[in-house]
Nucleic acid binder design. Structure first.
Lengths: 233, 233
DNA sequence: CAGTATAAATGAGTCAAGCTCAATAACGGA
DNA sequence: TCCGTTATTGAGCTTGACTCATTTATACTG
């Protein structure tokens, strides 16, 4: 009857319970959304009294925080791991894009709960979610910085602009994808989608060839002329 | 004491009340977010009993729906109006981008409430929000389709991919902008931000053709110089 | 100008769900 | 086996969305 690794020590039992609660929460949150999820149901699913949950988590929000944290941990780890085996910035970005989109689609309900919650949280609480995100996008940022150093990526755009372009288009694409009633596991269609997005993004961020410098020069010349006119004014 | 246009007929009074409630709701939702807003407070601010609100709106969600609807109506109207006075796809897209970002920043709290609520709603309820969005992005879609017909925009990318790229990057940029503690009314900084994003997006969607993008850049540079000279005159 | 039917407004009361806490149970070392 | 500590419980408290019986305002009519 006992599972092979039944918790023996007090500490082990406590940790197992915490995990059980998080697992139950993930389930119920996923099924009903944040507001729709009842602590009672989470407690029942975790085979625990309602009050017990509040020994492990300060409140419902903290419970969500734990669920989201676990998700981001998985996400960040697999992203990092995948990038390491690849050479070339474009390759790496394409992997990150595909990986992000597939992960977001399969755990879409978690993403949807995270987005748009910041506002109702205190400065301190929301900083927790931001931290998760920061750690995750650090993987992207590194890829991008390396690409810049290798001369593959333009250096004249702030990195956060590129990041918003990248993840913004991907996440919106996820939403569109779901709203259109697509299956979250049609890998071929997803790959096609990502490919199109990345083609566009790459055009915008890749360091242009020889003739491209013309473009940059014209831009800087224009700025100088405008500045000159401003001085006249 | 009476306002110049005090409502006289029954119908007028009812409509004035509905508007008062929506205005109060917009205020309170904006200050405290959806969950944080109390119907009691909205009622007090609208100078109405709590029960009265439920004569006008089925529930709290319907109240939010009305507030968001009013926002989208303003947004769509001003977007449409602004586009009409402009020639050239790039010009129009740049206007739409700036307009979107400025609007979203000034009414950021409304945006944040809308995003991420879909999940907790019934199919029917969420379709209301989708409809708002559909009407709004129709303006963008038209600009893009015209651009395709004029040969300025690539035709080999589905329009929804471009839309996600466009609004995804803009909205994420809004969030970044707010999180970095920028003022929502620093128009110069916003314009710079939008400019960088649009440069990237344009690279991705412009029809490559015979140096067409260079041509377009030269065209826009010329316009800027002309504008500067015009100021001198 | 009453008189009345109908529409509109009210707020005390209900209900549901997050959260608290005094009482209880389980544990493990002596 | 006893006892101090830790963990658990669930009945009740609180808050806030929502309801509904009652009251008030309005427009219509003879």
């Amino acid at each position: 009857m006992n599972s092979p690794t039944e918790p023996r020590t007090r500490r082990e039992r406590v940790e197992a319970r915490e995990e059980a609660i998080i697992a139950a929460a993930q389930q119920v949150f996923g099924d009903h959304g944040f507001d729709g999820a009842r602590i009672t149901d989470i407690a029942r699913l975790a085979e625990v009294a309602e009050g017990t949950i509040y020994l492990y988590f300060k409140n419902k929000e903290a419970l969500l925080h734990a669920v989201v944290g676990a998700f981001y941990q998985r996400l960040t780890a697999s992203a990092q791991e995948g990038v390491q085996g690849l050479a070339g910035t474009r390759r790496q970005l394409e992997f990150l894009a595909r990986h992000h989109m597939i992960s977001c689609l399969t755990e879409w309900h978690i993403i949807e709960m995270t987005v748009g919650r910041y506002r109702q949280l205190s400065e301190y609480e929301s900083s927790g979610y931001l931290q998760f995100n920061k750690t995750y996008v650090a993987v992207f940022d590194n890829v991008l910085r390396e690409g810049m150093n290798r001369g593959e990526i333009r250096k004249d755009i702030p990195i956060w602009n590129i990041r918003d372009l990248f993840y913004g288009s991907l996440d919106y694409s996820c939403r569109t994808y779901m709203l259109r009633g697509h299956a979250p596991d049609d890998l071929v269609e997803i790959a096609r989608n990502v490919q199109r997005l990345m083609n566009m993004v790459w055009q915008g961020i890749a360091r242009p060839g020889e003739e491209g410098s013309d473009h940059a020069d014209l831009e800087s010349i224009t700025r100088r002329l405008e500045a000159a006119v401003a001085r006249l004014e």
